[in-house]
Design a protein around this nucleic acid. Sequence first.
RNA 1: GGCCACGUGGCGCAACUGAAUAGCGCAUCUGAUUACGGCUCAGAAGGUUGCAGGUUUGAAUCCUGCCGUGGUCACCA
Length: 549
Amino acid sequence: MLRYKKGNPVQIGEALGAYVREKVDLISGFNVVKGFLNLKISDSYYLKFFKEIYNQKEFGKVNPSAGDSSVMVEYSSPNTNKPLHLGHIRNNLLGYSVSEILKASGKKVYKTQIINDRGIHICKSMLAWKRYGNGETPESTGLKGDKLVGNYYVKFDQEYKKEIEVFINQGKSADEAKAEAPIFLEAQEMLRKWEGGDEETVALWKKMNSWVYDGFDITYKNLGVDFDQLYYESDTYLLGKKVIEEGLKKGVFYRRDDGSVWCDLTDEGLDEKIVLRSDGTAVYMTQDIGTAIERVTDFPDIGGMVYTVGNEQDYHFQVLFLILKKLEFDWAKNLFHLSYGMVDLPSGKMKSREGTVVDADDLMIEMADTAKSISEELGKLEDFTDAEKDTLYKTIGLGALKYFILKVDPRKRILFDPENSVDFQGNTGPFIQYTYARIQSILRKANFDYSTDLEISKLNLHERERELIKQIQLLPETIQQAANNYSPAVIANYTFELVKEFNSFYQNVSILGEDNPDIKQFRVQLSQKVGEIIKTAFSLLGINVPERM
RNA sequence: GGCCACGUGGCGCAACUGAAUAGCGCAUCUGAUUACGGCUCAGAAGGUUGCAGGUUUGAAUCCUGCCGUGGUCACCA
């Protein structure tokens, strides 16, 4: 503004402030600090706002309008040869939460995953089971299906390493040994049989995969995530070849002398990328191109897609999106790689084959156990049944874990220390859950009908009340911001601020002890609303809130 | 080495996409409760935002170069 009106910023501010206070009802005061004009908004404005939203159950959320395009969010997408671990948990929490946030921001969302149910890694588990399994099943061992299969994946690797060692001792190079180990050759042979439709191999594949799916179902259920549509790589791995042919005609791709097909992205500052092998078979990229197109065919209203995949695949998605743009699909401009950093342990990276992973199921159990020991120490649950306690511990434990992971910007790496586990105090899920439970306690004790219409425009607001209402006002834009940035962390931080503000209010003013009935009712209503918002916001993070804890 | 992301008090994170004295939580130190649930609140201490330049009235934020960490550069997925 000073560019247009020269002069002393402080004087201009004074003049402007005085004018606005005079002419605008909403403004009840002002001050000028270092050239910044601060306007004080009148209490009646805040009260009016609160009254308007008091009865809006879904305040802050936007409903999709008819005719809007929808978004497909892909997440999880595990391999079916081993159980889910901490890395998958971050992926699942992010994907689920971003889906919910997008919905709340007014988008229609399809949640999906593509299950990597075929390939050499699957054959490794199958082969090891065939050789060493003695017909073991989840029923016979009492093991979760994914755990059982995972054990054989590890078993394969152990045997493989033994064979490699023998070869190396016989004087072969490491590469030769890896390529010639009999167990590896046999796994490759198994993959060929599978691709050829060999009955016995396919039957074994189906059997072992179904064990894994049963196991995954349990993990997903405990984690609280779900999907609207599943894709299986065994159905999609041949997709995309036709599009490559069309792309060749359009000149998007070119064929080399050996028959392989490439996309030249050097103009874009990237490399050349192979999209079809010289033997005509599909690569990962081919498949992803085909799958994307397949999805839009299945759901014609899709206008964009979100891929929740670790940042190790940044380059892959950069290339994928560029190729789809070159193929001129109109939805290609609305593709987003929800790229997230790895979850590291103090000991370094997690490696399935080396057993240095934090298992998803185990972790959830540990979190609930921690919640249990903390709650028992505080001992406020005497009248809870065992089943109620059990549910509560899960709610708190999962709340701690989910919040811990989601409050961090997805791009950043997370260091997870299983020893020190996750905090329950400060900026944590349980802190927020506790505040919610406390509010519910107030509402239970409020022995009057506080929901009646209240003429509150004449009340004078306490500073803490004003700040609380301000924070409530931010909810709608916060949801939009979280959606625009695909960032659950925005929601988490907002909720924490709200809760801190509420606790300060709670500690500084009396609610049920207030004499003036109007003020008392207003404070109960305000508390109730804060409770509702905590619940809504946490639902966007996939976190439940307890009525008591 | 090329490309990408990240680097903020001891530790873990923010900063509404360029604004006021860079916020918050752990941990540390002081206080508050015969209570509407102390898993709480009030306060103190703790910073040259990796380094060096630049753009701007104004930079943690944008640009350039360096340093550090991680990722990625397969006819694997």
